[in-house]
Design a binder for these strands. Structure first.
Lengths: 114, 114
DNA sequence: TTGACATACATAGAATACCGAGGTATATTA
DNA sequence: TAATATACCTCGGTATTCTATGTATGTCAA
C-alpha cells in the first residue's frame, strides 16, 4: 500500500534517532533498516534522509566518523550524543501523545458504505 | 504539552472527515470538537482547517449548506458524501498502516539517560 | 570487458502543508 | 462600552519531502 508522505513528517526524527540509538549506523544502512523493520512501509528517499542527518549533526544530536567497509567503500557512521538521547525521549513522548490523541478522536467511529 | 505541527500532516484529513462522518458540522464546531475529544492536544488553527474543508468540498467528499443558529449567526454546515466515506475508509487504512509501521520500527527500544 | 545494478555520499529545486497574521462581522458578557 | 467568543476567510513565510541529478566505487553476469 502507498504510504502518504505527509504521515512521515513528525515521526521521521523519531524513527531515525531511535535507530541510531541502538547502534552506530550510516545513512544508506538506515534507509535499508527502515524498509526491513517496517515491511517496506517506510522507504526513505536519499533526498529526505541525508538532510535530516546533517540537521541532527548541526543540532549536536549525533556525531559522525568515517570508516571503510571490507569492500573498501567509505561510510559515514553516526553516533548518538547525550543531547540526542534527550531529544529522542522528547520525540517518543510527542509520538505517544499524538497517537493517543488520534485514537481518542477516532474512538467509536463506524464507517458505513451503503 | 506542545504538539509538533508536523505530526498533524497526514492525519488531518482523517480526523476532520471522521468527525463530519458522525454528524453534519460547521468549521468552528470542528475545531472545538477536536480540542474537546483530544484533551486539547489538537488545536487546529483556522488557517489550517478552512482550506482543508474547501479542498474536501472541491474533491466532492463533503457538501455544504447554510444554516442560522438560534442566536442568528450564519453557519456553513458540511455533510459527508458517499465518495467522502470511501475516502475516509482509505484514510483510516493509511493511519493503521502508518501507526503499525512506527510501532514495528520502535519495538524493543530502550532509552537510557545516564 | 562491458553493462547493469547495488552501494554510498551529496544537493538544488518543486511541491505541499501548517501556521501566523490579518481581515470582516455579529453576539454575548462584564 | 469594551472585551471576548463566535464564525467565516485568505495571504505569505517556513519547514519538510520528494524528484532529479551528480559523483564514485564494488559486484556480478552476459
Amino acid at each position: 500500500m502507498y504510504m502518504d508522505k505527509n504521515y512521515i513528517g513528525g515521526s521521521s526524527y523519531l524513527l531515525v534517532l531511535s535507530l541510531i540509538n541502538r547502534k552506530d549506523m550510516y545513512g544508506y544502512e538506515i534507509i535499508k533498516e527502515l524498509e526491513l523493520l517496517s515491511d517496506d512501509a517506510f522507504k526513505f528517499k536519499e533526498g529526505t534522509l541525508y538532510p535530516i542527518l546533517h540537521k541532527f549533526e548541526n543540532s549536536g544530536w549525533i556525531e559522525s566518523y568515517s570508516k571503510f567497509s571490507d569492500s573498501g567503500k567509505e561510510r559515514k557512521y553516526y553516533h548518538i550524543t547525550k543531547t540526542g538521547i534527550q531529544q529522542l525521549v522528547q520525540e517518543q513522548e510527542q509520538w505517544d501523545l499524538f497517537k493517543d490523541s488520534v485514537m481518542k478522536v477516532l474512538n467509536g467511529n463506524r464507517y458505513v458504505l451503503d
